[in-house]
Every structure is written in structure tokens, then in C-alpha cells.
């Protein structure tokens, strides 16, 4: 998902998302998850932010060296809030953020016999926040 690719995609006029019609049923697929690990957290708009905070605190308690937070679209704000709250509570964590664009796929399921499956692509902005422990020893050495 390099920059040039994104620019190329954006020059194409944006298609309006089709809704369910007579021939098709519009269905969103789940967004892809680029990483899967215990210390990778995907922020959604459904999960309570306090629960996510607790999950992060537990990970920190288990001496996780870094936590990765992914958030997409409307959940970006919640993700940022979460990351900042963790940093506030634990001063030895620092943030690295990357913005990225995720391709989302919608299925147009056939509802009539003479229709076929179609897909439709959309793009949405996403954020990857890496929370990592500051190496206290190194900073001391530098001083």
C-alpha cells in the first residue's frame, strides 16, 4: 500500500456504494487483519474502551515489550484515545504512528438466478499505533 498506488486509485472517480437491489444483496465483508498476535489490538466501535484499556494494562503487566493498536475509519478516534490513555498511565511507553489506507471489499450477492457474484472495492483510512517501552538503560547511557 504505497503512496503512489493510492494516488493511482484515487484518480478514478469514486463509485457510490451500491445498495441492495432487485438482483443483488449488498453485504460488507470484514476488514482484513494484517497481524494476529496477543499484543495486537483491533479497536472497533462496539467494544467498550475501558475494556480495551484493561486488556492493554494486562499486557503491560505481563511485560509485553510492545503493543500494536489498529483502528479503521470511525474507530480511529477511539484508537487514538486509547493509545494516549495508555501513555498517560505508563510514562515509560512511547508512541509510533503510521497512517495507511485499507482496501475494503463489499460483496454483491446474487438474489436472482441470472445474476452473478460481484465485488466492489472501497478505501478507508486506518491507523497503526505502536506502543513500545522506552529503553531506560540506553537513555541513561546517552546522557
Amino acid at each position: 500500500m504505497s503512496d503512489t498506488q493510492n494516488k493511482g486509485q484515487r484518480s478514478v472517480p469514486k463509485k457510490q456504494p451500491k445498495q441492495s437491489s432487485k438482483d443483488h444483496i449488498f453485504r460488507k465483508r470484514n476488514p482484513p487483519k494484517p497481524e494476529r498476535d496477543d499484543s495486537v489490538i483491533y479497536v472497533s466501535t462496539k467494544t467498550h474502551i475501558k475494556a480495551l484499556l484493561q486488556k492493554c494494562n494486562k499486557l503491560i503487566g505481563e511485560n509485553a515489550s510492545e503493543i500494536v493498536i489498529y483502528c479503521l475509519g470511525a474507530a480511529i478516534q477511539r484508537g487514538i484515545l486509547l493509545a494516549l490513555q495508555i501513555c498517560e498511565e505508563h510514562s515509560d511507553f512511547e508512541l509510533h504512528t503510521n497512517t495507511l489506507t485499507t482496501e475494503l471489499i463489499d460483496d454483491l450477492e446474487p438474489a436472482a438466478d441470472d445474476a452473478d457474484y460481484e465485488i466492489q472495492k472501497r478505501f478507508n483510512s486506518a491507523l497503526r499505533i505502536k506502543l513500545s517501552r522506552k529503553d531506560l538503560l540506553e537513555t541513561k547511557e546517552n546522557n
Binding site: 465483508r29 482484513p32 460483496d107 457474484y117
Partner: peptide, 9 residues
């Protein structure tokens, strides 16, 4: 492929 949503149904 990490998630099933990437594979057509």
C-alpha cells in the same frame, strides 16, 4: 491470507 473475508464466499 489472514482473514476469511479476503476469500470470495
Amino acid at each position: 491470507v489472514s482473514t476469511f473475508s479476503q476469500i470470495p464466499p
